[in-house]
Design a protein around this nucleic acid. Structure first.
Lengths: 287, 287
DNA sequence: TTGCTCCTCACGTCACGTGAGGTGGC
DNA sequence: TTGCTCCTCACGTCACGTGAGGTGGC
């Protein structure tokens, strides 16, 4: 039963602005201990100081108000600590990401864009274990990590060996919007039914592709996309279909980001691809 | 003279969403190379890929669009690099701050609030060198650093010694709103005219104060404010006037945040202060 | 009466995201 | 005709900040 404080006094004790306090009242995150019925004044108790400070600390760390509400209303300590730890983990990841972004930006500003070596290749249709889902752009790395773990577990369970590097199919929506369909796959030799979690048997379709090898962190993938996409566009080779990535050396294989190797594969039209024609192919004849 | 790309194609090359590209067009940050007059389609050139990627990288690092515009339109390299470095500095400070916030949050959640030792004291009116300005809450640390450097320089110039620790007067507005009036001061013995920068001669008024010593980083000052303010409120000692801080050991004296010592001084009413009365004072008699 | 503190709308900020509803060429 | 990609509003999001205009007690 602490003393009663006006909103201004309470603000000074807690270092939370008056506007913020009114907002927390509006969204029912921190209700004043009482309201003066005569004039509508909010009256806070000194007992509420600690709560307000906790809110302030979490907001300083960019925790959304909804999550702060969960922390404050957590029924048990376990649940509460889980919510807090989840946020601290997220912060840590963001710190790492920011540091990587800064390094990556420095290299973008320093290095001139080197025109990439582009190879043309026809990928044959391949039966694969695959997981296909709508994935938000921001969470793609975590999604891939989780999903490939599941795919490899499915291989183990089915006692099947991969017949090539793992890969991903990225719908146009994935790049154009904030989220889109992604298929993570691992090619297998035979048509085996997976029967494991979200894993399905999928035939990755055949496609004519322009391919560039991307060296290093996924943070810089956009540079390879830009270079390869420009290469294709400038030669008017573009075609429909999802963009592919092949994970030759993936985060599952190494912790050293510099050692990562990723093939970026841009779908191209065989009809317009001179190399393809020179190999004796006649794509306009129905296959 | 690169190839022409629709917004969707350009989006895939740059990893910038279509919505974001339209937004950048709206605010004139990245104008399409051409617009198809027949149907209003935006047409981008492959030459614009690098620019879009730079925008994306900076946005990833939370640089405001206005600042990105400055970077892109910078007339010379010097100006451009200055803008970039300023942002990287800010990021670095934010990383440090976040780490401090996390540590501070852990201690808030772990430690029970220890009731502080509160001392009552009457501060006499003191002529001081001072700088008074409206300061945004978020920038108070930087402001203090700059302003105290200026104040000490003024002391040097006037060949005057401080007669006590430096301090700050914080208006109520400073805590209640996002910004407010702050006076940074250094007490001096005599009334000397400073004649240096923003520095003025000010008499810090006398006041009856409840004082608590805050040990350690300014990040945790809110805890001392809460404890001291609650102490004052629960005894109904509160009075008008700005809150004071005295910087006994300040960042100018040490790099070790744990060694910082700050007195937080809450104005109280002498009439209601029993200690004051017991000392034989009779504040209701006009002074 | 002036100042001060509180109140409630209503609207602004920032950088997009989310539909709705419509067009144009294959 | 269906699908696909593009278009333009208009409104939503998140956590407040910014006034405007008004009240109530000293």
């Amino acid at each position: 039963m602490g003393a009663s404080l006006t909103i201004g006094e309470f603000s000074r004790l807690t270092h939370v602005t008056v506007k913020a306090l009114r907002h927390y009242h509006d969204v029912d995150l921190l209700r004043p201990a009482a309201i003066d019925t005569a004039n509508g004044y909010r009256l806070y108790s000194t007992d509420q100081v600690a709560t307000a400070q906790v809110i302030r600390r979490f907001r300083e760390l960019d925790m959304p108000l909804e999550e702060i509400r969960d922390v404050l209303h957590a029924s048990d300590l376990l649940q509460r600590n889980r919510a807090i730890l989840a946020h601290l983990d997220r912060l840590e990841r963001r710190l790492d990401q920011t540091q990587a972004d800064v390094a990556s930006l420095r290299s973008l500003l320093a290095d001139p864009a080197i025109p990439p070596a582009v190879e043309y290749r026809t990928a044959a249709a391949t039966p694969s274990f695959a997981i296909a889902e709508m994935v938000p752009k921001a969470g793609i790395d975590e999604w891939c990590a989780a999903v490939f773990a599941e795919l490899y577990a499915a291989l183990d369970r089915a006692d099947v060996r991969p017949t090539g590097p793992s890969g991903g199919l990225y719908s146009n929506d994935f790049f154009e919007d904030a989220a889109g369909a992604v298929t993570a796959f691992i090619p297998i030799g035979d048509r085996v039914e997976p029967r494991f979690g979200r894993v399905q048997l999928v035939e990755v379709p055949s496609s004519r592709l322009a391919v560039t090898l991307h060296v290093g962190s996924f943070n810089d993938l956009d540079r390879t996309y830009g270079a390869l996409g420009a290469h294709v566009a400038e030669r008017s080779l573009g075609s429909e279909g999802p963009i592919r990535e092949h994970y030759l050396i993936s985060p599952a294989d190494t912790d050293d980001l510099a050692r990562l190797r990723t093939e970026v594969c841009w779908p191209i039209s065989p009809v317009l691809d001179t190399n393809y024609l020179l190999e004796g192919n006649r794509p306009w004849i129905s296959e």
